[in-house]
Amino acid sequence: MPDNYDDPRGGLATPRPGQEHFVAEVDEGGLGAVDAVKSDSAPSSFWRDAWREMRGRWLFWVSAAIILLVVLVAAFPGWFTSLDPRLDCELTESLGGPEPGHPFGFDKQGCDIYTRTIYGARASVLVGIMSTTMVVLVGAVMGSIAGYYGKWFDTILSRVTDIFFAIPLVLAAIVIMSVTPNRTAFIVALVLALFGWPQIARITRGTVMSVKNNEFVTAARSLGMSRGRILRRHVLPNASAPIIVYATVALGQFIVAEASLSFLGIGLPPSVVSWGGDINQYQQAIRTAPEIILYPAGGLALTVLGFMMMGDVVRDALDPKARKR
């Protein structure tokens, strides 16, 4: 039974003295599911409950709409503009302001900024999502193992983390990119991830170290639950908040970092339009037309906003305590 102390269905965990009252209050919502036997079917209904919780919140629908929009733009830019981001450029239009058909005006090369912002989504979102995913996977695994098992696991994994902390991204990118013939979004994301995971590994480790001392973990252990299962079922979900938060902020950071690499000639090929690339390029006009940088930066902000809100909703859904009652 203590197995479900933290279960959204509100399993009847044995509360510690003085806490009875609060446990009852928290778990009101999930009582309906109590009848289920605590067996292997538990995870699916854990997620089902999380889903039920999420879909009841307007924030979820807003963030889902934003993410859907960004994904659509990234997948089908042609639906949103009829121009080409690189070919339909006239130098005579250089830095020209907005006009009918060109709502955002023109950049220094005379390209339509609206079109470039639409086409920039694909590379940026791809790099951002892929590198964030990789960082979260590697970082969370390394960090949780180090934090949960401790001892020499911790020693070895943490020292490896220290080594990776030290390597300058630029240097690593120069070396890796020079031996890579095809610079795809995946490769760029891989390089960014390779040097972005230590931070999230440290954060996961710290949180796991704290969470593993919680009562429900001790309880689960005393019931003979295997350590791996405890880590997966109890510790990680409770340590997920900082991981999700870090990941959503890092998403934006990776999109910007891609641009820095491209700017140095070690990122995506120059033929690829991306928000980060345009942000870099438009910096040069900062004294003459400072407003144009807002468009690619706006695309970036909207994407990060979508994922950030989604992260909040997911986190709340995973955390039974924070549920709306």
Partner: peptide
């Protein structure tokens, strides 16, 4: 940039912990 990280991390952890049992206790 780091400020944004610290802010988001603190906010979420605080929001989470402020509903925790020991706080109510």
């Amino acid at each position: 940039t780091s400020f944004a990280y610290v802010l988001r991390l603190t906010r979420t952890s605080v929001a989470e912990n402020s509903t925790a049992d020991y706080v109510r206790t």
